[in-house]
Design a protein around this nucleic acid. Structure first.
Length: 163
DNA sequence: GCCAACGTTGGC
DNA sequence: GCCAACGTTGGC
């Protein structure tokens, strides 16, 4: 059905994940060390979390709705997809009345804090560099809260901001 | 199953 | 606060 059994041998992948810092910021993850990435309510993003994201994958941590918007640090996937508890919590803003425990619609992953950039990698700087022209975030914006990232893009960003 | 209308998102 | 882009909804 899926290839979870092969996850250990799969190559490391790279992602970009969006959050509004007023809701959950890189400093929150830094303090908690490991954070639950919950509240994703978009099917495309859900499918990537559920089907593709593996332990050991690296995540570019992106802040939206703040000046400046951009990547502010790095995280690492430490637990693969499991049912997102917020979908069952009536008091949670992400509560989903349709979802059942037998057949949950939404998943969460756990990520671990790796690094906070001293200087954020702003969206504007990515748009200004043609090397990043084929990045999802420079093309389609941040409508997709979980995006795959090419290794070359990840490495260039790391080289510039995390050394 | 198409697609127009509608709501939401998020950069600016 | 504006508005373009996108996802979702619902009538047919």
């Amino acid at each position: 059905m899926d290839n979870k059994k092969h996850s250990q041998t799969k190559k490391q992948q790279f992602w970009l994940m969006k959050t509004e810092p007023s809701c959950y910021a890189i400093d929150d993850l830094k303090r908690e060390k490991v954070g639950m990435w919950d509240g994703v309510r978009n099917y495309q993003a859900r499918n990537m979390l559920r089907d593709d994201m593996r332990v050991g994958d690296r995540v570019l941590f992106y802040h939206s709705n703040i000046e400046p918007v951009g990547i502010v640090g790095i995280a690492e996937v430490v637990r693969e997809a499991y049912p997102d508890p917020t979908q069952f919590d009536v008091k949670n803003e992400h509560y989903d009345a349709i979802s059942t425990k037998e057949n949950p619609r939404w998943v969460a992953v756990d990520v671990k804090f790796v690094k906070k950039f001293i200087i954020p990698c702003t969206l504007a700087s990515l748009k200004n560099d043609s090397f990043f022209n084929d990045m999802v975030v420079t093309q389609k914006g941040m409508r997709l809260s979980v995006q795959p990232v090419l290794k070359k893009h990840y490495e260039r960003i790391i080289t510039r901001h995390a050394s």
